[in-house]
């Protein structure tokens, strides 16, 4: 495993009696993409503000690996900001041109003078903003401003990129683009830390997910591993041809028999009443199984081999988002059961 570049040790932030961040412990390794997921007010932005040194923790500390050293206390390191790029909240800029702003930011980060223009052009091109280089930001759309927000976080080519709700206020197309950029950063070996309440966005791009609720981390792992706490997992199978209504009942019966050992028999009625459902509009099956990786493989084998005369599976996926939503709900529930009260008002 790669080295730890960012570490939170019992990080706590209080505002009066309200505990916004409650003793967070977390390790981020080089090259990882970590998602910090939680509802609004869970403590995501407060955590990020502490990394950015905009807020001081009440107790605990953040450790960072600077260029030439071991992990050091962020508060004691003066020149760490050059290693991290931040996008905090919805970006707001001075009303200057994109070029003027980016040049100023690059200068502040001490980026080599002779390379600034090249870097600005590269990033503007990557984010398709080249034509807007000399336009004032007041003329930018929300999506363009958000892109500029990401560019300013990357302008000095930092090792660690911290993005707070990067998809907020964006249309679906722009969100897809942002996801693509995050993947591009991953491919460049950057360490990315994304905070969001949008589970889908996070589950699509992150290696690991930290679930935060009322300032506490209630789970930290890959979506797959986090899903182990669930008794039920779901699979989506898209079929090449729609099933004939006349054969549907018998086919579902046969499916239930064949997949019986792997299905979830103690299904939560809130999720579904039956373990296998057919959705004619989507031309697909939803299978609620026991969540084991081995079962997933067996199910696929059975669907292909034993039902080759009935239908052809063209897609077999596990929807991460709904899974993550349920993991999150389950963990919040467990957290409440384990601790009695989740929110502690500073006492």
């Amino acid at each position: 495993m790669s080295e730890v570049v960012l570490k939170f040790e019992k990080l706590t932030k209080k505002f009066g009696n309200f505990t916004a961040v409650n003793g967070i412990n977390l390790e981020v390794h080089r090259g990882e993409t970590i998602g910090l997921v939680g509802p609004n007010g869970a403590g995501k932005t407060t955590t990020i503000k502490m990394i950015a040194k905009i807020l001081r923790p009440n107790s605990g500390r953040i450790l960072i690996r600077t260029d030439q050293s071991d992990l050091e206390d962020l508060q004691k390191v003066s020149r760490t900001t050059n290693q991290i790029g931040f996008l905090i909240d919805i970006p707001a800029f001075y009303n200057m041109t994109a070029y003027q702003l980016l040049r100023y930011f690059a200068n502040l980060h001490n980026y080599p003078k002779d390379q600034i223009d090249k870097r600005i052009n590269e990033l503007l091109e990557l984010f398709k903003l080249t034509e807007w280089k000399h336009e004032k930001v007041k003329n930018f759309s929300k999506g363009m401003t958000q892109k500029l927000g990401i560019i300013q976080a990357l302008i000095h080519n930092p090792e660690i990129i911290i993005l707070d709700e990067p998809q907020t206020g964006l249309d679906p197309l722009a969100r897809v683009e942002i996801r693509r950029y995050i993947r591009e950063l991953q491919s460049l070996g950057k360490t990315v830390f994304v905070a969001s309440h949008m589970l889908y966005e996070i589950s699509e791009v992150c290696d690991k997910i930290a679930l935060i609720n009322y300032g506490s981390i209630i789970g930290f792992d890959t979506v797959e591993n986090l899903a182990h706490i669930l008794k039920t997992s779901e699979l989506n199978c898209v079929l090449l041809e729609p099933l004939k209504p006349s054969e549907l009942e018998s086919l579902l019966k046969k499916l239930t028999e064949k997949l019986h050992p792997y299905l979830d028999h103690d299904l939560d009625p809130k999720i579904s009443m039956i373990p296998i459902k057919y959705f004619p509009e989507q031309q697909g099956l939803k299978i609620f199984y026991d969540g084991q990786n081995k079962s997933k493989g067996e199910i696929l084998k059975i669907l292909i081999k034993e039902f080759e005369n009935d239908f052809t599976v063209i897609s077999f996926t596990q929807p991460k988002t709904s899974q993550l939503e349920r993991v999150y709900t389950e963990m919040v529930k467990n957290n409440k059961l384990n601790n009695g009260v989740v929110r502690k008002n500073g006492n």
Binding site: K53, T81, I88, D89, P91, A92, F93, L108
Partner: peptide, 12 residues
Amino acid sequence: SKKTGFIVFPKI
């Protein structure tokens, strides 16, 4: 008030 601090405070 304009929240420009979120962009500049981490840089300087």
